[in-house]
Amino acid sequence: MSSVLFDSPGPRTRARHRTYSIVAGVVLAAALVGVVLFLQDRGELEYELWEPFVTPDYLEALVLDGLVNTLQMAATAVLMAVVIGVVLGVGKLSDHRLVRWPCWLVVEFFRAVPLLLLIVFIFFAYGTGGGIGSYWSVVIGLTLYNGAVLAEVFRAGVLAVPRGQAEAAYALGMRKTQVMVTVLLPQAVKIMLPAIISQCVVALKDTSLGYYVLAPGLTTVGRSIWQEFGNQFQTATVLAATYIALNFLLSMLATWAQRRFVGERSQTPALGIGTGGRDAGQPMGGGGAFGGQATGGA
């Protein structure tokens, strides 16, 4: 148990660390008990307040009106965003200035503008009255934002394909489009799959913004539940738990895709999700953070 930063701790230091751990554990446990007692005291743990979430009718509303709509919105937006992302990403790599610059402008614009501002604009300019409605306002907003983000991802992915691949394809006499479509893009998509799945997490989280324009979805159903029962805290907890569970599944999928399609060697911390707790088994002390990542890259 020695670290690069200091000698392995002796019995005294280990005892000291044990004391810290016990004290910290007791403090944190006390805080947790305190929170539970506070909620109990306020009557927030009463069965009536949680009842809607075990009543079949409300559960059905939550799943059919909320969950299904949320998932549908996220899936539609991500699929359309992938298409837009490929087009814009390839456009940014174009040899022609007339194609490259507009693509660059569009990507930068939608990346810099807050998604909520975009959704509010789409909804109040085109969605109300006989317009496209709140559902599609949110989906289109999500598509434009995530498409711009994915364009950057795809561009980076195409650039990450080894140079020799494109050179070999040109040497075989392929045209620019052929090189891009048959050689570079398939490999780029494979490299970028984990990043695309991580972007799904972002899109799923952002569907909650539909709340502002009353688009169907988990948060909107949640609001009608807490307006009826006055159980704001309980509803928020259930909604958060639902989102966390869904995102956790997606993160696991991203980790699996990383291992399956990209391989272990590129541990890009930028992909972030799912790498939590990597240093849990590392030696104690500040040096614990020097883990596989620092040595793995080179």
């Binding site: 989280k205 909650s208 805290f233 928020a236 909604l239 966390i244």
Partner: peptide, 14 residues
């Protein structure tokens, strides 16, 4: 993994 909007719901409503 929680949407910011839900965090806002906790702080502003719950």
């Amino acid at each position: 993994n929680t949407p910011l909007l839900i965090v806002f719901v906790f702080v502003f409503v719950a």
